[in-house]
């Protein structure tokens, strides 16, 4: 069963944003387009806003062993965005992500009807991303070279786009070929940049939200099957009575939302950031407030009464309860 045809899909929006980024990179090589200069590691936007990839910036700071104020300023902008909204770069901007995403669509299209078994790259293998991030940082410290930046396929692709240096395309092509056997191998298992964004974006406000009154009515598993990062959305989140997909590897790409045939999932902004939660309000209350808002249109008043929980309980099927104690390890900030 595939997702029902819809006018709007997150995949369109997502690919549009990434394509615009690629076009900006492409135009940046010409003198008549001064508004966006540079590659994925560092760019200058509109003549004065410096954007520096946090990992590239960290690599340079560690390799040169000097604090470069201009560089740190450029990193802070992207880091702050990631802290606020989560690892959105992976799902929405990364040019390599766009290529590998289209590669997967192509694979699915060409292999349609043949029932090719997906060789699973389970989401627990994502821990290797963090090890690889650590190894590149460690190598950078001792070798005094931003070693990942010299070999990163993201950079290789960007150099090909910006400077026409097509030598790196071979690596990207090999990666795309490899991903026909191991779907999204780079993003799931290798990418240290994604790992860094996941680390800093663990409290990000943009989340795939779960409607608790709809969750689990028709467990079709489309969300899990469509997740490019291998997150088990249905098993671990929707059926576990969670209110949002808090998996660190979630890139907010919206593929599960597109795949969901019922109004269970939506991509939305959470009400309060973990860092802003005062002692009175718990993380769970914050989530409830959002849910109440979508249910009743007035989240704040509903949660202000002590009965907020009870109200919500009345709306969900009797066999389930919202207030399940959450798994301490997996929920950020609990």
């Amino acid at each position: 069963m595939s997702a029902k045809p819809r006018l709007f899909r997150w995949v369109y929006a997502r690919r549009l944003v990434a394509t615009v980024f690629v076009l900006l990179l492409l135009f940046g090589r010409f003198d008549w387009f001064p508004w966006f200069k540079g590659a994925t590691t560092a760019t200058l936007v509109a003549h004065w806003i410096p954007l520096v990839d946090p990992l590239a910036g960290a690599d340079v700071l560690l390799a040169s062993r000097q604090i470069d104020t201009a560089l740190v300023m450029g990193m802070v902008i992207l880091l702050a965005f990631a802290v606020l909204y989560g690892p959105v770069f992976c799902g929405w901007v990364c040019p390599l992500g766009l290529v590998l995403d289209i590669n997967q669509s192509l694979r699915r299209f060409l292999m349609r009807g043949t029932r090719v078994r997906r060789i699973p790259v389970s989401s627990s293998s994502a821990q290797w991303r963090y090890a690889i991030l650590g190894i590149t940082l460690g190598l950078t410290i001792t070798l005094r070279l931003p070693i990942f930046q010299t070999v990163s396929p993201i950079n290789l692709l960007a150099w090909a786009i910006v400077h026409g240096a097509f030598a790196g395309i071979i690596v990207v092509g090999a990666l795309a070929l490899l991903e026909w056997a191991f779907p999204r191998f780079w993003c799931r298992v290798v990418c240290p940049l994604g790992a860094l964004y996941s680390l800093v974006g663990r409290w990000g406000l943009l989340r795939v939200r779960i409607n608790p009154t709809e969750a689990g009515k028709t467990p079709c598993r489309q969300c899990t099957l469509h997740c490019p990062m291998g997150v088990r959305v249905m098993e671990d989140y929707s059926l576990a009575h969670r209110l949002s997909v808090d998996h660190p590897e979630c890139t907010r790409c919206g593929d599960c939302v597109d795949a969901c045939p019922r109004p269970v999932l939506r991509l939305g902004i959470k009400r309060c950031h973990q860092w802003y939660i005062q002692g009175t309000k718990s993380h769970h209350d914050c989530e409830l407030m959002d849910v109440m808002e979508t249910e009743t249109g007035d989240g704040a008043s509903a949660i202000s009464q002590e009965s907020g929980l009870v109200q919500l309980k009345l709306q969900v099927p009797k066999s389930r309860t919202i207030h399940k104690p959450l798994d301490k390890g997996d929920v950020p900030g609990l």
Binding site: S124, G138, L143, G329
Partner: peptide, 25 residues
Amino acid sequence: MSWNRRQFMLVAGIATGTGIGAWVQ
């Protein structure tokens, strides 16, 4: 899989990378 695991992998990776780097150096 918890954050502890990820943080452990990160720290172990830094240690490994530093060691390899020192050896190459």
